[in-house]
């Protein structure tokens, strides 16, 4: 049987400990880690038992790469073109249906051109789910980290993001999504290597064909190649692909069949079956 009041005292001991530990934790850091690890990081570390407050407008908690806020469209800085092909997948997977896309039409033929004319996201409806970024086959839409968005008095204009407001250069994308960017580079390199290998294989085959039958007809016309020919090519990873591989940890985010990825370490024996394109390929 406890003395009455001991339970309360025990509880008060806990609060007292909390009070003291806020100081001792800081002492522990003096001279040791201070300056090495920025304060918000240190305070959000699970081994910290002291103060956890982040002095927000002055300090910012680092947002993780996966963090999702409002989406943005990626513009390739090399070519100056939007990556988006206005394929409409993001508009379809958007759960609250807050994406509006108008396709560009060729002024002469009226056939659709793979680029959006208008692109709207209603941020007063968007639920930050990230489906648009996850299912875009062209890596053209990504989730932004900028959470400091407000509007005064005028939401219908300011919070409806149009294409200009949404577009960001791919350097920005690279800066906030380093892992995703590394994955993209790697994929691109793999793609290129595949194309090159395919072209080589094609050239070799053509040459053989040409040698076999002196009557040569189509060689150049088909070489432009809509379809990279798979045989023997898939396994041949380019050196670039191997170099970027260590940057990519065991898992490239948001991307389904990674079977082709880990073998990068043991790349030389090109035994893996050529089952790439890691993103669901878009028929375009």
């Amino acid at each position: 049987m406890n003395l009455p009041g001991t339970g309360i005292l025990k509880g008060l001991g806990v609060t007292l400990k909390h009070f003291i530990v806020t100081y001792t934790e800081d002492f522990k850091y003096i001279g040791k880690k201070a300056g090495v690890e920025p304060r918000p990081l240190r305070r959000s570390n699970p081994s910290n038992h002291g103060i956890v407050t982040v002095q927000y407008p002055d300090e910012h908690l680092p947002v993780p790469e996966n963090f999702r806020y409002i989406p943005f469209l990626v513009r390739d800085s090399a070519t100056g073109e939007d990556r988006c092909t206005s394929c409409g997948i993001c508009a379809k997977v958007c759960p609250p249906q807050c994406i509006w896309i108008v396709r560009t039409e060729d002024p002469v033929t009226h056939r659709p051109v793979p680029a959006p004319k208008e692109f709207y996201i209603d941020t007063t409806v968007c639920m930050n789910c990230g489906f648009c970024a996850e299912f875009c086959p062209f890596d053209a839409i990504k989730m932004d980290h900028k959470y400091e968005i407000t509007s005064e008095h005028n939401r219908s204009q300011e919070l409806l993001f149009d294409k200009d407001r949404l577009t960001m250069p791919d350097t920005y994308h690279a800066s906030i999504h380093p892992l995703d960017w590394a994955r993209e580079l790697q994929e691109k390199a793999a793609e290129e290597a595949k194309k090159k290998a395919a072209a080589e294989a094609k050239a070799a085959a053509d040459a053989r064909k040409a040698a076999a039958s002196a009557a040569s007809k189509p060689a150049s016309a088909t070489a432009g190649g809509a379809k990279p020919a798979p045989p023997a090519a898939g396994g041949a990873k380019s050196p670039a692909g191997q170099q970027s591989a260590p940057n990519v940890p065991s898992k490239p985010p948001a991307q389904p069949p990674p079977a082709a990825k880990p073998p990068a370490q043991q790349a030389p024996p090109p035994a893996t079956s050529p089952q790439d394109p890691p993103k669901p390929s878009a028929g375009s």
Partner: peptide, 21 residues
């Protein structure tokens, strides 16, 4: 309404930002 903050949900920082605004 004086300040609108989009987001679903806005991060606590977003809300603080709204307060600063």
């Amino acid at each position: 309404v004086d300040i609108y903050i989009p987001g679903c949900p806005p991060r606590p920082e977003s809300l603080l930002h709204g307060f600063i605004k």
